[in-house]
Design a protein around this nucleic acid. Sequence first.
DNA 1: TACAATTCGGTCATTACTCAACAAATCAAT
DNA 2: ATTGATTTGTTGAGTAATGACCGAATTGTA
Lengths: 182, 182
Amino acid sequence: MSKVDRRIAKSQVAIKNAVTELLGEKSFDDITIQDIADRANVNRGTIYLHYTDKYDLLDKMIEEHMDNLRELCQSAADLTFQEGNYVWYEYFERHYLFFSTMLASKGAPYFRSRFLELVIEEFKADVDTTKGKNQGLSEEVILQFFGSAVVGAVEWWFKNGMPLPARVMAEQTGALLDRNLE
Amino acid sequence: MSKVDRRIAKSQVAIKNAVTELLGEKSFDDITIQDIADRANVNRGTIYLHYTDKYDLLDKMIEEHMDNLRELCQSAADLTFQEGNYVWYEYFERHYLFFSTMLASKGAPYFRSRFLELVIEEFKADVDTTKGKNQGLSEEVILQFFGSAVVGAVEWWFKNGMPLPARVMAEQTGALLDRNLE
DNA sequence: TACAATTCGGTCATTACTCAACAAATCAAT
DNA sequence: ATTGATTTGTTGAGTAATGACCGAATTGTA
């Protein structure tokens, strides 16, 4: 990984943080490039230097979060579902502004599908239809079934203002997964 | 005021904030330019672009604080000593890391004299030796006397971990000044 | 004391950012 | 529909910041 120029790194985090902040104040459609530039304390042109438009920017942000979640999965590969889930829920909590907005806003369906895609991808290694309780079932069905379940639980959590602690969410969804996979 | 380039402004606040942060962790002499660059997330060379060395940097920081205090005096010109003092003490509180370090460290005598100089300068407009209770006294003496008093009070406040609320410090030193100047 | 490792200042070519200006597109509201 | 205002996306010239490299000075420690 040839290290990126410090200026690029700084500009990009400033821009992304600005978007996250603004998402807590108004809907994404109402956010202008100028808003982002002002908040990030960056020239408007600088944004175009890194992203084609604000949708591309949001996309890159989503991509980054997905990468981070994937990363967390790697480092938590040998943990139980409950422990592993907790790592995720901690991440959600730390970035709740982004995730809750993404799951509530107009673009939610798109974000939801990206999220589901990731969950399914990460579940693949954990599903075994050759033996155990899922023997004979379709892997496709299993993945869609429990992937949707996890995404739905997260969705519920955010839409209801995170009524349960991350720890509890992780334990309960973890238990449900343990019971059904492996 | 021809507005400064945004990059310059950003670099300088990052650098100054870095110094203030580091002052809370180690003495100024132990802080290297590299430390500051790392903390500010700025190339080491950038610091030399704005300051000749770390002493020049510290000097510019002191200068800026003095300017800010002067500014506060302007905007509080028609307040009582108690109210005006409160504005200052609020500022001290907000920048306690910087001031308490400056007044405790090895360079304290220098900083103290700069500070005293400012206080005396700002008192000049308030001292009248032609009438009232200070009639016949030497303006020089009055200024040195109460200037030192104010600085000493602030010094005590910081060295003892700000044992009284800013509000109280302002009221009490304000009352003492009201009683003697006016 | 001698040695190694930092830190210091400074230079340099390259790169990213800034600012101002621009035309085109979009929006608001009569 | 027609204006007027805002936002957009792009451009170009100028500037600041970067990373790398350098020899010299300072530091720490074996």
